[in-house]
Simulated assay, not measured.
Amino acid sequence: MERMSQAIHQAFGDGRWKAPTFWNAVTVSHLFFEDDLVLFAEASNEQVTMMNDVLNEFCACSGHKISKQKSQLLLSLNVSENLASRISGVMGISITKDLGRYFGVPIIHRRVTKGTYEKMLSKVASRVKG
């Protein structure tokens, strides 16, 4: 996975990978979790092609395979339906509106509110009580 990270950093450094900037301060191109990978990039045909190239190069060098059936594509609400379906078709990955939870913690797509962690906190409180 270190090689994958290096390839992404190289593409970002070359200006080929256009990663989003959050809070006008932090640019995020990818995150690794155990055996999961989350990629962040601009929703465009060029970025999808570049992302596929990086992933295919990694798979060819490492012998790993990407399970596209287990993969999910989450797009910004600002991405048109037409572009979304083109991206999904090129990547071969289905689109989702909700990535669910990771180790019991909700993967947040919008603003964090009190209710975001309410279910998790009550579950932890009941376990501590018991």
Rank of each mutant, 00 (worst) to 15 (best):
E2F: 08
R3K: 14
Q6V: 14
I8S: 00
F12A: 08
D14A: 15
G15P: 13
A19Y: 03
A19E: 04
P20G: 15
W23F: 15
W23N: 11
N24W: 11
A25I: 10
V26W: 08
S29E: 06
F32H: 05
F32Y: 12
E34Y: 08
D35M: 02
D36T: 05
D36S: 13
L37S: 03
L37N: 03
F40L: 15
A41H: 04
A41C: 15
E42I: 11
A43N: 10
Q47N: 06
V48S: 06
M51T: 06
V54L: 10
E57R: 04
A60L: 11
A60T: 04
G63N: 05
S76F: 11
V79N: 08
E81F: 12
A84F: 04
A84I: 03
V90Q: 12
S94T: 07
S94V: 11
I95Y: 00
D98W: 01
Y102C: 12
F103W: 06
F103N: 00
G104C: 08
V105P: 03
V105A: 13
I107A: 05
I107D: 03
I107L: 15
I108W: 07
V112N: 02
K114E: 07
G115A: 14
E118W: 08
M120S: 13
L121T: 07
L121A: 14
L121P: 02
S122W: 08
V124A: 07
R127I: 15
K129D: 09
